[in-house]
């Protein structure tokens, strides 16, 4: 299976991942190579096989519904790119 430049741009948009125009074709080539590699799985009939999500078949552990974390907003916001009055700043979303 091969992907074209348009496919790559569409996937990059879904991932909100900027890629430079000059690199699009090499990503298309690499991803096509990866998909060829992945296609080897199709040689296996897996109709009767169930999926495996966890190596030890564990499911999500539950815990009592009580507060365990303390508020550390200021501590965490020290490393933020831009904050004001305890809020993270981003470019204006609503005009």
């Amino acid at each position: 299976m091969s992907l074209c430049a348009t496919d790559v741009k569409k996937i990059a948009h879904l991932a909100r991942l900027g890629i430079e125009e000059k690199d699009v074709s090499s990503y298309a080539q690499d991803l096509s190579g990866m998909l060829d590699l992945v296609a080897q799985m199709n040689a296996l009939n897996t109709d009767a096989v169930s999926t495996m999500a966890h190596p030890l078949e564990q499911t999500q552990r539950l815990r009592p519904d009580c507060v365990t974390e303390i508020n550390q907003r200021e501590h965490f916001q020290i490393i933020a790119p831009q904050v004001e009055s305890g809020l993270y700043l981003v470019p204006k979303v609503i005009e």
């Binding site: 897996t46 096989v49 999926t51 495996m52």
Partner: peptide, 14 residues
């Protein structure tokens, strides 16, 4: 085609 298939193959390998 990809993720679920891979998780099934993962079981076969295991």
């Amino acid at each position: 085609a990809y993720y679920l298939k891979a998780q099934k193959v993962r079981r076969l390998i295991t």
